[in-house]
């Protein structure tokens, strides 16, 4: 396939401006068995995140006497992309994403509160359209928050990239395939500490700075959506029963 022109008259092929996010919707508590869960639609991505635990670390020797161990499985359903049927089992990409996602939550969860325990995070991509690792982390953060597991912050993740000279935020699949750079980043919004950063393609130092700036701006929007999703079940209760909380 020929490389499509990704930006026409300053707008992207899906009509977005360079710094415009796709619409994001998050719903919590969609998996009753889980300690916490979230369903997210981020543009055409559809993602489920579920958290189990803290529970006894198994096998026992994997437990850490000083803290909980965090396990993460990121996986894509075999029907989640427009290409051929996916192979079963984790591929190398999924193993890498699971690893860096786990590392984000090892930072953010107060693991020291739960020695010899494990906390399992499952991210399942039902429908993929670029930026699934960012969507997965953003959704898992909400699932964790609803589980009540104590965290330092509610992290968000989003990708920035480059098309020609233009730095863009939140690449969809087509942009991801044909862009000149892609940089997924996860950040803890309270102190802007960077929890995940990966990059490929090419960025000058100026473009790199611009991309990080755009990510932080997008983060303000994403953080707000996450917080509203976490609060919504409680607000629904208040609306239903009219109870007042000071």
């Amino acid at each position: 396939m020929e490389k499509p022109q990704l930006i026409v008259n300053g707008l992207r092929l899906d009509g977005r401006k360079p710094d415009e996010l796709r619409p994001i919707k998050i719903e919590t508590d969609i998996i009753k068995n889980a300690s916490g869960s979230a369903y997210m639609e981020w543009g055409n991505n559809k993602v489920i995140a579920a958290v189990y635990g803290p529970k006894e670390a198994l096998p026992k020797h994997t437990g850490d006497p000083e803290k909980a161990i965090v396990k993460c499985v990121y996986s894509m359903t075999p029907f989640s992309s427009l290409e051929e049927h996916g192979r079963s089992g984790p591929n190398r990409r999924a193993i890498e994403i699971s690893k860096v996602t786990k590392e984000v939550f090892e930072n953010i969860i107060l693991v020291e509160n739960f020695p010899r325990s494990e906390i399992d995070i499952f991210i399942e991509i039902l429908q993929a359209d670029g930026g699934t690792r960012a969507a997965g982390i953003t959704a898992a953060a909400v699932a964790l928050a609803t589980s009540g597991i104590p965290m330092r912050d509610i992290p968000y993740a989003v990708s920035a990239g480059r098309v020609g000279d233009t730095v863009i935020i939140d690449l969809n699949k087509l942009e991801d395939n044909y862009s000149d750079a892609d940089m997924p980043v996860a950040i803890a919004p309270r102190n802007n500490e960077i929890l995940l950063m990966q990059m490929d393609g090419g960025l000058t130092r100026e473009q790199f700075k611009k991309a990080l700036e755009m990510i932080k701006n997008a983060g303000k929007v994403i953080t707000k959506i996450q917080r509203e999703a976490i609060k919504k079940p409680y607000e629904d209760l208040i609306n239903k029963y009219g109870a007042k909380y000071e």
Partner: peptide, 16 residues
Amino acid sequence: NNIRAIQKGLYGSFKE
């Protein structure tokens, strides 16, 4: 001339 790849690893975090 260009940054070509980045990989942050482990649980710790970085300031900008």
